[in-house]
Nucleic acid binder design. Structure first.
Length: 565
RNA sequence: GCACUCGUAGCUCAGCUGGAUAGAGCACCCGCCUUCUAAGCGGGCGGUCUCAGGUUCGAAUCCUGACGGGUGUACCA
Protein backbone atom coordinates (compact mmCIF):
# COMPACT_ATOMS: atom_id res chain seq x y z
CA UNK A 1 0.00 0.00 0.00
CA UNK A 2 1.48 3.30 -1.07
CA UNK A 3 -0.19 4.98 1.85
CA UNK A 4 1.31 8.43 1.62
CA UNK A 5 0.73 8.59 -2.08
CA UNK A 6 -2.93 7.79 -1.52
CA UNK A 7 -3.25 10.61 0.95
CA UNK A 8 -1.25 12.98 -1.25
CA UNK A 9 -3.59 12.27 -4.13
CA UNK A 10 -6.54 13.42 -2.06
CA UNK A 11 -4.82 16.65 -1.16
CA UNK A 12 -3.79 17.21 -4.75
CA UNK A 13 -7.37 16.77 -5.88
CA UNK A 14 -8.47 19.26 -3.29
CA UNK A 15 -5.92 21.72 -4.62
CA UNK A 16 -7.13 21.25 -8.14
CA UNK A 17 -10.75 21.77 -7.14
CA UNK A 18 -9.86 24.86 -5.15
CA UNK A 19 -8.03 26.17 -8.17
CA UNK A 20 -4.73 26.56 -6.34
CA UNK A 21 -1.52 25.79 -8.16
CA UNK A 22 1.04 23.98 -6.11
CA UNK A 23 4.13 22.16 -7.17
CA UNK A 24 4.93 19.35 -4.83
CA UNK A 25 2.48 18.23 -2.25
CA UNK A 26 3.51 15.81 0.44
CA UNK A 27 1.96 15.02 3.72
CA UNK A 28 4.20 13.96 6.56
CA UNK A 29 3.67 11.64 9.48
CA UNK A 30 1.91 13.36 12.32
CA UNK A 31 4.37 14.45 14.96
CA UNK A 32 2.05 13.72 17.87
CA UNK A 33 -0.72 11.19 18.42
CA UNK A 34 -3.22 13.96 19.11
CA UNK A 35 -2.54 15.37 15.64
CA UNK A 36 -3.90 12.29 13.91
CA UNK A 37 -2.06 10.07 11.44
CA UNK A 38 -0.76 12.52 8.88
CA UNK A 39 -0.31 16.24 8.65
CA UNK A 40 -0.08 18.63 5.76
CA UNK A 41 2.04 21.72 6.39
CA UNK A 42 1.96 23.24 2.94
CA UNK A 43 -0.70 25.84 3.64
CA UNK A 44 1.73 28.09 5.49
CA UNK A 45 4.30 28.17 2.73
CA UNK A 46 1.58 28.71 0.18
CA UNK A 47 0.08 31.54 2.16
CA UNK A 48 3.23 33.53 1.73
CA UNK A 49 3.32 33.03 -2.03
CA UNK A 50 -0.33 33.97 -2.41
CA UNK A 51 -0.14 36.63 0.26
CA UNK A 52 -3.09 35.23 2.10
CA UNK A 53 -3.91 34.02 5.55
CA UNK A 54 -2.59 30.46 5.99
CA UNK A 55 -5.64 29.34 7.91
CA UNK A 56 -7.83 30.56 5.06
CA UNK A 57 -5.78 28.58 2.56
CA UNK A 58 -6.04 25.55 4.79
CA UNK A 59 -9.79 26.08 4.99
CA UNK A 60 -10.04 26.24 1.21
CA UNK A 61 -8.22 22.94 0.92
CA UNK A 62 -10.44 21.38 3.55
CA UNK A 63 -13.58 22.59 1.83
CA UNK A 64 -12.52 20.78 -1.33
CA UNK A 65 -11.13 17.65 0.28
CA UNK A 66 -12.95 14.43 -0.56
CA UNK A 67 -12.62 12.32 2.54
CA UNK A 68 -13.88 9.23 0.78
CA UNK A 69 -13.72 6.12 2.86
CA UNK A 70 -10.09 6.65 3.70
CA UNK A 71 -10.03 9.78 5.80
CA UNK A 72 -12.22 10.08 8.84
CA UNK A 73 -11.47 13.60 9.90
CA UNK A 74 -9.46 16.58 8.75
CA UNK A 75 -8.85 19.58 10.96
CA UNK A 76 -7.02 22.84 10.87
CA UNK A 77 -4.73 23.46 13.80
CA UNK A 78 -2.29 26.10 14.94
CA UNK A 79 -1.12 28.53 12.28
CA UNK A 80 -2.44 26.40 9.43
CA UNK A 81 -1.57 22.76 9.85
CA UNK A 82 -4.03 20.30 8.42
CA UNK A 83 -4.26 17.21 10.56
CA UNK A 84 -5.66 14.04 9.04
CA UNK A 85 -7.13 11.00 10.72
CA UNK A 86 -7.44 7.78 8.79
CA UNK A 87 -10.72 5.97 8.97
CA UNK A 88 -10.34 2.85 11.14
CA UNK A 89 -12.64 0.83 8.89
CA UNK A 90 -10.56 1.68 5.88
CA UNK A 91 -7.36 0.86 7.77
CA UNK A 92 -8.85 -2.44 8.91
CA UNK A 93 -9.92 -3.49 5.42
CA UNK A 94 -6.55 -2.56 3.96
CA UNK A 95 -4.70 -4.62 6.56
CA UNK A 96 -7.08 -7.48 6.04
CA UNK A 97 -6.23 -7.57 2.35
CA UNK A 98 -2.51 -7.26 2.97
CA UNK A 99 -2.60 -10.14 5.44
CA UNK A 100 -3.96 -12.44 2.75
CA UNK A 101 -1.45 -11.54 0.09
CA UNK A 102 1.91 -13.12 -0.49
CA UNK A 103 3.53 -9.72 -0.97
CA UNK A 104 1.60 -8.15 1.88
CA UNK A 105 -0.07 -5.78 -0.51
CA UNK A 106 3.22 -4.34 -1.67
CA UNK A 107 3.25 -3.62 -5.38
CA UNK A 108 5.97 -4.25 -7.89
CA UNK A 109 7.45 -1.32 -9.77
CA UNK A 110 5.49 -0.37 -12.84
CA UNK A 111 8.63 0.38 -14.79
CA UNK A 112 11.32 -1.98 -13.56
CA UNK A 113 14.87 -1.31 -14.60
CA UNK A 114 18.09 -3.23 -14.73
CA UNK A 115 20.18 -2.27 -11.76
CA UNK A 116 23.79 -3.17 -11.12
CA UNK A 117 24.87 -3.29 -7.51
CA UNK A 118 28.62 -3.45 -7.07
CA UNK A 119 29.51 -4.60 -3.61
CA UNK A 120 31.85 -6.59 -1.37
CA UNK A 121 34.83 -6.45 -3.76
CA UNK A 122 37.41 -8.16 -1.57
CA UNK A 123 41.07 -8.12 -2.45
CA UNK A 124 42.31 -11.60 -3.22
CA UNK A 125 45.67 -10.86 -1.62
CA UNK A 126 44.11 -10.07 1.74
CA UNK A 127 41.88 -11.69 4.24
CA UNK A 128 38.42 -10.21 4.72
CA UNK A 129 38.33 -8.19 7.93
CA UNK A 130 35.58 -6.29 9.70
CA UNK A 131 36.09 -3.36 7.37
CA UNK A 132 34.68 -5.44 4.51
CA UNK A 133 31.48 -6.08 6.37
CA UNK A 134 29.73 -2.88 5.45
CA UNK A 135 30.08 -3.04 1.70
CA UNK A 136 29.02 -6.66 1.68
CA UNK A 137 25.85 -6.34 3.72
CA UNK A 138 24.75 -2.88 2.65
CA UNK A 139 25.18 -3.94 -0.95
CA UNK A 140 23.36 -7.18 -0.39
CA UNK A 141 20.49 -5.35 1.28
CA UNK A 142 20.22 -2.87 -1.56
CA UNK A 143 20.21 -5.70 -4.08
CA UNK A 144 17.55 -7.63 -2.15
CA UNK A 145 15.46 -4.53 -1.78
CA UNK A 146 15.51 -3.51 -5.43
CA UNK A 147 14.81 -7.08 -6.41
CA UNK A 148 11.83 -7.26 -4.09
CA UNK A 149 10.44 -4.04 -5.50
CA UNK A 150 10.62 -5.49 -8.98
CA UNK A 151 13.88 -4.37 -10.56
CA UNK A 152 16.13 -6.77 -12.38
CA UNK A 153 19.19 -6.74 -10.19
CA UNK A 154 22.63 -7.73 -11.39
CA UNK A 155 25.04 -8.26 -8.53
CA UNK A 156 28.67 -7.58 -9.29
CA UNK A 157 31.50 -8.64 -7.08
CA UNK A 158 34.46 -6.66 -8.38
CA UNK A 159 37.21 -8.62 -6.72
CA UNK A 160 40.79 -7.38 -6.70
CA UNK A 161 42.72 -10.10 -8.49
CA UNK A 162 45.25 -8.08 -10.45
CA UNK A 163 48.34 -6.15 -9.55
CA UNK A 164 52.00 -6.41 -8.76
CA UNK A 165 51.61 -8.20 -5.46
CA UNK A 166 50.35 -11.32 -7.22
CA UNK A 167 53.76 -11.96 -8.74
CA UNK A 168 55.20 -12.34 -5.28
CA UNK A 169 52.26 -14.36 -4.02
CA UNK A 170 52.26 -16.93 -6.79
CA UNK A 171 56.02 -17.28 -6.68
CA UNK A 172 55.66 -18.10 -3.02
CA UNK A 173 52.73 -20.41 -3.65
CA UNK A 174 54.84 -22.29 -6.16
CA UNK A 175 57.63 -22.66 -3.65
CA UNK A 176 55.28 -23.97 -1.01
CA UNK A 177 54.03 -26.68 -3.34
CA UNK A 178 51.19 -28.73 -1.92
CA UNK A 179 51.51 -27.05 1.44
CA UNK A 180 50.34 -23.88 -0.22
CA UNK A 181 46.67 -24.73 0.05
CA UNK A 182 46.87 -25.05 3.79
CA UNK A 183 48.95 -21.93 4.36
CA UNK A 184 46.51 -19.91 2.36
CA UNK A 185 43.99 -20.43 5.13
CA UNK A 186 45.55 -17.47 6.78
CA UNK A 187 46.13 -15.06 3.95
CA UNK A 188 47.47 -12.37 6.23
CA UNK A 189 50.22 -14.70 7.36
CA UNK A 190 50.81 -16.00 3.87
CA UNK A 191 51.27 -12.45 2.64
CA UNK A 192 53.69 -11.65 5.44
CA UNK A 193 55.70 -14.78 4.80
CA UNK A 194 55.89 -14.07 1.11
CA UNK A 195 56.91 -10.51 1.83
CA UNK A 196 59.71 -11.43 4.19
CA UNK A 197 60.92 -13.98 1.67
CA UNK A 198 60.81 -11.23 -0.94
CA UNK A 199 62.81 -8.86 1.24
CA UNK A 200 65.36 -11.43 2.31
CA UNK A 201 66.12 -13.29 -0.89
CA UNK A 202 67.20 -11.42 -3.97
CA UNK A 203 66.70 -14.42 -6.26
CA UNK A 204 63.12 -14.85 -5.03
CA UNK A 205 62.44 -11.14 -5.47
CA UNK A 206 63.61 -11.26 -9.04
CA UNK A 207 61.45 -14.27 -9.72
CA UNK A 208 58.46 -12.46 -8.23
CA UNK A 209 59.03 -9.48 -10.50
CA UNK A 210 59.43 -11.74 -13.46
CA UNK A 211 56.15 -13.50 -12.62
CA UNK A 212 54.26 -10.24 -12.60
CA UNK A 213 55.27 -9.64 -16.18
CA UNK A 214 54.60 -13.24 -17.07
CA UNK A 215 51.03 -13.23 -15.78
CA UNK A 216 50.33 -10.10 -17.71
CA UNK A 217 51.78 -11.47 -20.90
CA UNK A 218 49.72 -14.63 -20.55
CA UNK A 219 52.40 -17.15 -19.62
CA UNK A 220 50.60 -20.46 -19.17
CA UNK A 221 52.52 -21.68 -16.12
CA UNK A 222 52.10 -18.44 -14.23
CA UNK A 223 48.48 -18.11 -15.19
CA UNK A 224 47.79 -21.55 -13.80
CA UNK A 225 49.43 -20.61 -10.53
CA UNK A 226 47.56 -17.33 -10.48
CA UNK A 227 44.22 -19.01 -11.12
CA UNK A 228 44.92 -21.49 -8.37
CA UNK A 229 45.71 -18.71 -5.97
CA UNK A 230 42.56 -16.75 -6.84
CA UNK A 231 40.47 -19.87 -6.62
CA UNK A 232 41.64 -20.69 -3.13
CA UNK A 233 41.39 -17.13 -1.94
CA UNK A 234 37.93 -16.71 -3.37
CA UNK A 235 36.95 -19.94 -1.66
CA UNK A 236 37.78 -18.30 1.67
CA UNK A 237 35.57 -15.35 0.80
CA UNK A 238 32.78 -17.70 -0.06
CA UNK A 239 33.08 -19.27 3.35
CA UNK A 240 32.43 -15.83 4.79
CA UNK A 241 29.52 -15.21 2.42
CA UNK A 242 28.06 -18.54 3.40
CA UNK A 243 28.29 -17.70 7.08
CA UNK A 244 27.00 -14.21 6.49
CA UNK A 245 24.10 -15.51 4.47
CA UNK A 246 24.82 -13.15 1.64
CA UNK A 247 23.49 -13.68 -1.87
CA UNK A 248 26.78 -13.65 -3.74
CA UNK A 249 27.98 -16.51 -5.86
CA UNK A 250 30.74 -17.19 -8.37
CA UNK A 251 28.49 -16.02 -11.16
CA UNK A 252 28.43 -12.57 -9.63
CA UNK A 253 32.20 -12.31 -9.68
CA UNK A 254 33.42 -9.95 -12.34
CA UNK A 255 37.01 -9.45 -11.36
CA UNK A 256 39.36 -6.62 -12.20
CA UNK A 257 41.17 -8.91 -14.57
CA UNK A 258 37.95 -9.36 -16.53
CA UNK A 259 38.40 -5.86 -17.91
CA UNK A 260 42.05 -6.21 -18.93
CA UNK A 261 41.33 -6.54 -22.60
CA UNK A 262 39.06 -3.50 -22.60
CA UNK A 263 41.60 -1.11 -21.10
CA UNK A 264 43.41 -0.20 -24.31
CA UNK A 265 40.05 0.59 -25.85
CA UNK A 266 39.20 2.95 -23.00
CA UNK A 267 42.33 4.96 -23.72
CA UNK A 268 41.63 4.92 -27.44
CA UNK A 269 38.06 6.10 -26.96
CA UNK A 270 39.10 8.86 -24.62
CA UNK A 271 41.67 9.94 -27.15
CA UNK A 272 39.09 9.93 -29.95
CA UNK A 273 36.82 12.00 -27.80
CA UNK A 274 39.66 14.50 -27.50
CA UNK A 275 39.75 14.19 -23.72
CA UNK A 276 43.23 12.79 -23.34
CA UNK A 277 46.26 14.86 -22.44
CA UNK A 278 49.77 13.82 -21.65
CA UNK A 279 51.25 15.17 -18.46
CA UNK A 280 54.61 14.15 -17.03
CA UNK A 281 54.52 11.16 -19.34
CA UNK A 282 51.15 9.93 -18.07
CA UNK A 283 47.88 9.91 -20.02
CA UNK A 284 45.36 12.03 -18.17
CA UNK A 285 41.89 13.47 -18.37
CA UNK A 286 41.68 16.99 -16.98
CA UNK A 287 38.20 17.83 -15.77
CA UNK A 288 37.15 21.42 -15.63
CA UNK A 289 37.27 22.71 -12.09
CA UNK A 290 39.28 19.79 -10.76
CA UNK A 291 42.81 20.36 -9.62
CA UNK A 292 44.02 16.85 -10.06
CA UNK A 293 43.54 14.96 -13.29
CA UNK A 294 42.24 11.46 -13.70
CA UNK A 295 45.24 9.42 -14.68
CA UNK A 296 44.25 6.58 -16.93
CA UNK A 297 47.65 5.39 -18.04
CA UNK A 298 50.90 5.57 -16.16
CA UNK A 299 54.10 6.86 -17.69
CA UNK A 300 55.36 3.27 -17.75
CA UNK A 301 52.36 2.24 -19.83
CA UNK A 302 50.44 0.55 -17.01
CA UNK A 303 46.75 1.09 -16.40
CA UNK A 304 45.10 2.21 -13.21
CA UNK A 305 42.11 1.79 -10.96
CA UNK A 306 40.29 4.57 -12.83
CA UNK A 307 40.87 2.87 -16.17
CA UNK A 308 39.39 -0.38 -14.95
CA UNK A 309 36.42 1.43 -13.46
CA UNK A 310 35.77 3.20 -16.74
CA UNK A 311 35.86 -0.12 -18.58
CA UNK A 312 33.51 -1.58 -15.97
CA UNK A 313 31.12 1.35 -16.33
CA UNK A 314 31.06 0.89 -20.08
CA UNK A 315 30.38 -2.81 -19.69
CA UNK A 316 27.64 -2.33 -17.13
CA UNK A 317 25.83 0.36 -19.02
CA UNK A 318 26.16 -1.03 -22.52
CA UNK A 319 26.60 -4.78 -22.28
CA UNK A 320 24.55 -5.42 -19.15
CA UNK A 321 22.17 -2.58 -19.97
CA UNK A 322 21.92 -1.16 -16.46
CA UNK A 323 19.97 2.04 -15.82
CA UNK A 324 21.12 2.38 -12.25
CA UNK A 325 24.64 1.48 -11.21
CA UNK A 326 25.35 1.56 -7.51
CA UNK A 327 28.82 1.30 -6.03
CA UNK A 328 28.78 0.31 -2.41
CA UNK A 329 32.22 1.49 -1.46
CA UNK A 330 33.92 3.30 1.42
CA UNK A 331 33.31 7.06 1.53
CA UNK A 332 37.03 7.72 1.23
CA UNK A 333 36.72 6.97 -2.43
CA UNK A 334 34.06 9.56 -3.13
CA UNK A 335 36.54 11.79 -4.92
CA UNK A 336 37.56 8.95 -7.17
CA UNK A 337 33.99 8.05 -8.10
CA UNK A 338 32.96 11.63 -8.65
CA UNK A 339 35.72 11.94 -11.21
CA UNK A 340 35.24 8.57 -12.85
CA UNK A 341 31.49 9.11 -13.20
CA UNK A 342 32.09 12.46 -14.80
CA UNK A 343 34.61 11.12 -17.26
CA UNK A 344 32.30 8.24 -18.15
CA UNK A 345 29.41 10.57 -18.88
CA UNK A 346 31.47 13.18 -20.73
CA UNK A 347 33.13 10.54 -22.87
CA UNK A 348 29.78 8.96 -23.62
CA UNK A 349 30.72 5.59 -22.10
CA UNK A 350 27.51 5.77 -20.17
CA UNK A 351 24.26 7.19 -21.59
CA UNK A 352 22.86 10.30 -19.96
CA UNK A 353 19.82 8.57 -18.50
CA UNK A 354 21.84 6.05 -16.51
CA UNK A 355 21.99 6.84 -12.81
CA UNK A 356 25.45 6.42 -11.37
CA UNK A 357 25.68 6.49 -7.63
CA UNK A 358 28.34 6.00 -5.05
CA UNK A 359 26.63 4.42 -2.07
CA UNK A 360 29.27 5.62 0.32
CA UNK A 361 29.66 4.48 3.87
CA UNK A 362 31.70 5.86 6.72
CA UNK A 363 35.01 4.69 8.02
CA UNK A 364 35.18 2.33 10.90
CA UNK A 365 36.83 3.71 14.02
CA UNK A 366 38.15 1.99 17.09
CA UNK A 367 36.91 2.79 20.58
CA UNK A 368 39.23 5.76 20.93
CA UNK A 369 37.79 7.31 17.80
CA UNK A 370 40.76 6.60 15.59
CA UNK A 371 40.48 4.76 12.29
CA UNK A 372 40.85 1.06 12.42
CA UNK A 373 44.29 0.23 11.15
CA UNK A 374 44.39 -2.11 8.22
CA UNK A 375 47.98 -3.14 8.21
CA UNK A 376 49.78 -3.46 11.52
CA UNK A 377 47.66 -5.96 13.38
CA UNK A 378 44.69 -4.74 15.35
CA UNK A 379 42.25 -5.75 12.66
CA UNK A 380 39.54 -8.20 13.46
CA UNK A 381 39.11 -10.92 10.89
CA UNK A 382 35.57 -11.07 9.68
CA UNK A 383 35.36 -14.81 10.04
CA UNK A 384 36.41 -14.57 13.68
CA UNK A 385 33.78 -11.96 14.39
CA UNK A 386 31.10 -14.15 12.87
CA UNK A 387 32.20 -17.24 14.75
CA UNK A 388 32.27 -15.32 18.01
CA UNK A 389 28.79 -14.00 17.30
CA UNK A 390 27.47 -17.54 16.99
CA UNK A 391 29.23 -18.64 20.17
CA UNK A 392 27.77 -15.77 22.16
CA UNK A 393 24.31 -16.29 20.73
CA UNK A 394 24.51 -19.95 21.67
CA UNK A 395 25.41 -19.11 25.24
CA UNK A 396 22.53 -16.67 25.45
CA UNK A 397 20.01 -19.12 24.02
CA UNK A 398 21.03 -22.19 25.97
CA UNK A 399 19.66 -20.86 29.23
CA UNK A 400 16.19 -20.29 27.81
CA UNK A 401 14.83 -23.59 26.61
CA UNK A 402 15.90 -27.10 25.93
CA UNK A 403 17.00 -27.52 22.38
CA UNK A 404 18.61 -30.34 20.55
CA UNK A 405 22.20 -29.68 19.60
CA UNK A 406 21.15 -29.34 15.99
CA UNK A 407 18.41 -26.83 16.75
CA UNK A 408 20.70 -24.89 19.02
CA UNK A 409 23.33 -24.59 16.35
CA UNK A 410 20.84 -23.41 13.78
CA UNK A 411 19.20 -20.83 16.01
CA UNK A 412 22.53 -19.55 17.30
CA UNK A 413 23.68 -19.01 13.77
CA UNK A 414 20.57 -17.09 12.80
CA UNK A 415 20.55 -14.98 15.96
CA UNK A 416 24.28 -14.33 16.12
CA UNK A 417 24.82 -13.45 12.48
CA UNK A 418 21.63 -11.43 12.49
CA UNK A 419 22.90 -9.35 15.39
CA UNK A 420 26.13 -8.51 13.59
CA UNK A 421 24.38 -7.54 10.38
CA UNK A 422 21.65 -5.58 12.08
CA UNK A 423 24.07 -3.59 14.21
CA UNK A 424 25.82 -2.44 11.09
CA UNK A 425 22.77 -1.85 8.93
CA UNK A 426 20.97 0.09 11.65
CA UNK A 427 23.28 3.08 11.54
CA UNK A 428 23.22 5.79 8.93
CA UNK A 429 25.70 4.51 6.40
CA UNK A 430 27.29 7.87 5.69
CA UNK A 431 28.67 8.68 9.08
CA UNK A 432 31.76 7.11 10.55
CA UNK A 433 31.06 4.59 13.18
CA UNK A 434 32.77 3.03 16.11
CA UNK A 435 33.41 -0.65 16.01
CA UNK A 436 32.47 -2.09 19.35
CA UNK A 437 32.62 -5.82 19.66
CA UNK A 438 30.21 -5.91 22.59
CA UNK A 439 27.71 -3.59 21.01
CA UNK A 440 27.75 -5.52 17.80
CA UNK A 441 27.03 -8.75 19.66
CA UNK A 442 24.44 -7.30 21.99
CA UNK A 443 21.00 -8.83 22.24
CA UNK A 444 19.17 -6.04 24.04
CA UNK A 445 17.14 -3.13 22.79
CA UNK A 446 17.16 -2.20 19.13
CA UNK A 447 18.75 -5.37 17.84
CA UNK A 448 17.73 -8.03 15.39
CA UNK A 449 16.84 -10.27 18.30
CA UNK A 450 14.08 -7.89 19.35
CA UNK A 451 12.40 -8.47 15.99
CA UNK A 452 13.11 -12.19 16.01
CA UNK A 453 11.73 -12.43 19.52
CA UNK A 454 8.49 -10.70 18.53
CA UNK A 455 8.22 -13.01 15.55
CA UNK A 456 8.69 -16.09 17.74
CA UNK A 457 6.10 -14.84 20.21
CA UNK A 458 3.58 -14.54 17.43
CA UNK A 459 4.40 -17.98 16.10
CA UNK A 460 3.93 -19.34 19.59
CA UNK A 461 0.43 -17.87 19.69
CA UNK A 462 -0.43 -19.51 16.41
CA UNK A 463 0.93 -22.87 17.57
CA UNK A 464 -1.39 -22.69 20.54
CA UNK A 465 -4.30 -21.51 18.44
CA UNK A 466 -3.77 -24.37 16.02
CA UNK A 467 -6.15 -23.21 13.32
CA UNK A 468 -6.19 -21.03 10.25
CA UNK A 469 -7.39 -17.52 10.95
CA UNK A 470 -10.39 -16.46 8.96
CA UNK A 471 -12.38 -13.33 9.50
CA UNK A 472 -12.10 -9.59 9.69
CA UNK A 473 -9.98 -7.00 11.35
CA UNK A 474 -11.75 -4.55 13.60
CA UNK A 475 -9.68 -1.75 15.03
CA UNK A 476 -10.42 -1.88 18.73
CA UNK A 477 -8.43 0.92 20.25
CA UNK A 478 -5.89 3.64 19.62
CA UNK A 479 -2.98 1.23 19.94
CA UNK A 480 -4.37 -1.15 17.35
CA UNK A 481 -5.00 1.78 15.09
CA UNK A 482 -1.38 2.87 15.39
CA UNK A 483 -0.15 -0.65 14.78
CA UNK A 484 -2.35 -1.08 11.73
CA UNK A 485 -1.33 2.24 10.20
CA UNK A 486 2.29 1.35 10.80
CA UNK A 487 1.77 -1.94 8.99
CA UNK A 488 0.33 -0.09 6.03
CA UNK A 489 3.34 2.21 5.87
CA UNK A 490 5.70 -0.64 4.98
CA UNK A 491 5.67 -0.04 1.24
CA UNK A 492 6.37 3.67 1.61
CA UNK A 493 9.36 2.87 3.77
CA UNK A 494 10.77 0.32 1.35
CA UNK A 495 10.45 2.67 -1.59
CA UNK A 496 12.14 5.49 0.22
CA UNK A 497 14.90 3.20 1.46
CA UNK A 498 15.48 1.99 -2.10
CA UNK A 499 15.61 5.51 -3.44
CA UNK A 500 18.08 6.63 -0.78
CA UNK A 501 19.93 3.30 -0.66
CA UNK A 502 19.50 3.52 3.09
CA UNK A 503 19.07 0.23 4.96
CA UNK A 504 18.75 2.03 8.30
CA UNK A 505 15.38 3.37 7.19
CA UNK A 506 14.19 -0.22 7.17
CA UNK A 507 15.63 -1.04 10.58
CA UNK A 508 14.10 2.11 12.05
CA UNK A 509 10.74 1.14 10.65
CA UNK A 510 10.96 -2.43 11.92
CA UNK A 511 11.93 -1.21 15.35
CA UNK A 512 8.98 1.16 15.51
CA UNK A 513 6.65 -1.52 14.25
CA UNK A 514 7.84 -4.09 16.74
CA UNK A 515 7.76 -1.61 19.61
CA UNK A 516 4.10 -0.98 18.85
CA UNK A 517 3.47 -4.67 18.59
CA UNK A 518 5.14 -5.41 21.94
CA UNK A 519 2.88 -2.88 23.62
CA UNK A 520 -0.12 -4.34 21.86
CA UNK A 521 0.95 -7.80 22.96
CA UNK A 522 1.20 -6.74 26.60
CA UNK A 523 -2.05 -4.85 26.67
CA UNK A 524 -4.37 -6.67 24.30
CA UNK A 525 -4.57 -10.36 25.06
CA UNK A 526 -5.46 -12.69 22.22
CA UNK A 527 -5.96 -16.25 23.39
CA UNK A 528 -6.65 -15.54 27.02
CA UNK A 529 -10.07 -16.22 28.47
CA UNK A 530 -12.67 -13.55 28.20
CA UNK A 531 -11.62 -12.37 24.76
CA UNK A 532 -14.58 -12.60 22.44
CA UNK A 533 -14.24 -14.41 19.14
CA UNK A 534 -14.47 -11.36 16.93
CA UNK A 535 -11.78 -9.50 18.85
CA UNK A 536 -9.60 -12.59 18.97
CA UNK A 537 -9.78 -13.11 15.22
CA UNK A 538 -9.01 -9.50 14.55
CA UNK A 539 -6.02 -9.48 16.89
CA UNK A 540 -4.75 -12.72 15.44
CA UNK A 541 -4.82 -11.21 11.99
CA UNK A 542 -3.00 -8.10 13.11
CA UNK A 543 -0.39 -10.28 14.78
CA UNK A 544 -0.07 -12.38 11.66
CA UNK A 545 0.47 -9.39 9.40
CA UNK A 546 3.02 -8.06 11.88
CA UNK A 547 4.92 -11.35 11.81
CA UNK A 548 4.88 -11.46 8.04
CA UNK A 549 6.11 -7.88 7.84
CA UNK A 550 8.93 -8.60 10.27
CA UNK A 551 9.92 -11.64 8.29
CA UNK A 552 9.87 -9.77 4.99
CA UNK A 553 11.71 -6.77 6.38
CA UNK A 554 14.43 -8.88 7.91
CA UNK A 555 14.67 -10.98 4.74
CA UNK A 556 15.54 -7.87 2.79
CA UNK A 557 18.26 -7.17 5.34
CA UNK A 558 19.47 -10.73 4.86
CA UNK A 559 18.40 -11.80 8.33
CA UNK A 560 16.30 -14.86 9.05
CA UNK A 561 13.65 -15.55 11.66
CA UNK A 562 12.98 -18.62 13.78
CA UNK A 563 9.65 -19.99 14.98
CA UNK A 564 10.86 -20.70 18.47
CA UNK A 565 13.33 -18.84 20.61
C1' G B 1 46.85 25.15 1.72
C1' C B 2 42.41 23.43 -0.90
C1' A B 3 38.16 20.04 -1.08
C1' C B 4 34.65 16.66 1.07
C1' U B 5 32.26 14.99 5.51
C1' C B 6 30.66 14.83 10.49
C1' G B 7 29.68 17.57 15.43
C1' U B 8 22.26 16.05 18.89
C1' A B 9 21.50 13.07 26.51
C1' G B 10 27.24 10.19 30.43
C1' C B 11 28.01 6.43 26.01
C1' U B 12 26.23 4.63 20.96
C1' C B 13 23.00 6.70 17.55
C1' A B 14 17.82 8.32 15.03
C1' G B 15 15.58 12.72 13.29
C1' C B 16 18.06 16.80 8.57
C1' U B 17 12.93 17.71 0.94
C1' G B 18 12.29 23.80 7.54
C1' G B 19 6.83 23.01 11.24
C1' A B 20 3.48 22.48 16.83
C1' U B 21 6.60 20.12 23.73
C1' A B 22 14.04 17.27 19.90
C1' G B 23 13.48 10.84 19.96
C1' A B 24 15.52 5.70 20.87
C1' G B 25 18.99 1.99 22.85
C1' C B 26 22.79 1.29 26.60
C1' A B 27 23.95 2.89 31.62
C1' C B 28 21.42 4.45 36.35
C1' C B 29 16.71 4.45 39.72
C1' C B 30 11.43 2.53 40.61
C1' G B 31 7.40 -0.85 39.33
C1' C B 32 5.16 -5.45 36.53
C1' C B 33 5.73 -12.90 35.72
C1' U B 34 -0.72 -18.37 39.24
C1' U B 35 -3.50 -16.64 32.32
C1' C B 36 -0.59 -15.81 24.75
C1' U B 37 7.71 -16.45 25.66
C1' A B 38 10.08 -10.86 31.51
C1' A B 39 15.65 -11.47 25.47
C1' G B 40 9.55 -8.17 27.29
C1' C B 41 6.30 -3.99 29.27
C1' G B 42 5.25 0.64 32.24
C1' G B 43 7.48 4.83 34.81
C1' G B 44 11.77 8.08 36.25
C1' C B 45 16.61 10.49 35.53
C1' G B 46 19.22 12.79 31.58
C1' G B 47 19.55 18.19 26.11
C1' U B 48 21.44 26.31 25.66
C1' C B 49 20.87 19.94 19.03
C1' U B 50 29.67 22.58 19.15
C1' C B 51 29.70 28.12 18.95
C1' A B 52 28.45 32.96 16.50
C1' G B 53 25.68 35.34 12.91
C1' G B 54 21.91 35.23 8.77
C1' U B 55 17.25 33.79 5.93
C1' U B 56 11.98 32.76 7.76
C1' C B 57 5.65 33.56 10.63
C1' G B 58 8.76 29.21 12.24
C1' A B 59 15.69 26.42 12.12
C1' A B 60 18.67 20.43 15.07
C1' U B 61 17.22 20.76 9.76
C1' C B 62 18.77 25.90 4.85
C1' C B 63 23.11 29.83 4.20
C1' U B 64 27.89 32.17 6.04
C1' G B 65 31.90 32.05 9.40
C1' A B 66 34.72 30.01 13.60
C1' C B 67 36.24 25.79 16.46
C1' G B 68 36.81 20.41 16.85
C1' G B 69 36.97 15.03 14.75
C1' G B 70 37.56 12.17 10.23
C1' U B 71 38.86 11.71 5.08
C1' G B 72 40.85 12.95 0.27
C1' U B 73 44.38 15.72 -2.43
C1' A B 74 49.14 13.06 -9.97
C1' C B 75 50.86 8.01 -11.91
C1' C B 76 48.32 2.02 -5.16
C1' A B 77 43.43 -0.16 -5.25
Amino acid sequence: MKLKEEVNTRIKEAFAKAGIEAESITVTDATKPEFGDFQFNGAMALAKQLKQNPRQIAQMILDNLELGGMIRKAEIAGPGFINLWLNPEWVATSCQQAEKEERLGIGRKENPIKAVVDYSGPNMAKQMHVGHLRSTIIGDTLANLLEFLGDEVIRQNHIGDWGTQFGMLIAYLEEMGDEGNGSLKDLEQFYKDAKSRFDADEAFANKAREYVVKIQSGDAHCLTLWKKFIDISLGHCEEVYEKLDVNLSREDVRAESFYNDALAKVIEDLDNAGMLKESDGAQCVFLEGDEVPVIVRKSDGGYLYATTDLAALYYRANVLGAKRISYVVDARQSGHFKQVFRVAKEAGFVPEDVKLEHVAFGTMMDKTGKPFKTRDGGTVKLIDLLDEAVVRAKAAITSKENYSEEELEKIARIVGIGAVKYADLAINRESNYIFDWDKMLSFEGNTSLYMQYAYARIQSIFRKYGKQVEGEIVIGDELEHKLAVMLLRFEDVLNKAAEDAAPNQITTYLYELVTLFMRFYERNPILKEGVDERTRTSRLMLADLTAKSIKQGLAILGIQVVDRL
